[in-house]
Amino acid sequence: MEKKARQFGYTITRDRQIDYDANKHDISKIVAAAEPSLNLCISCGTCSATCSAALFTDFSLRHVILLLRRGETSGLAKEVAKCMLCGKCQLVCPRNVSTRNLIIQISKAVIPAQL
């Protein structure tokens, strides 16, 4: 479609909206069941400020958690692969989110979904 569009000299702008109703929310339910502290995140960004991976990539655990909770899961497998599982985020989280296990559970949940 996009190729054709280029051929014929017009462009298609993709809708940027989060289509919450169309998105699938089963992955966030699976992850929340495996690691309930997912639901305690308050998006403060302390994890992402301290994150070893965030210095060199655009990885942000805070952002990943939000994507998951909105059902925006298509890019998650690529995202969580950037995490080095160093655990620094777990030391700083004010809500005691079990961040390392959360990332492991997200990986488990999204990798089969994207194969």
Binding site: S43, C44, G45, T46, S48, A49, T50, C51, A54, L55, D58, S60, R62, H63
Partner: peptide
Amino acid sequence: KVEDTLLGKP
């Protein structure tokens, strides 16, 4: 060191 959470950048 903080994350500017509204911009999504450290």
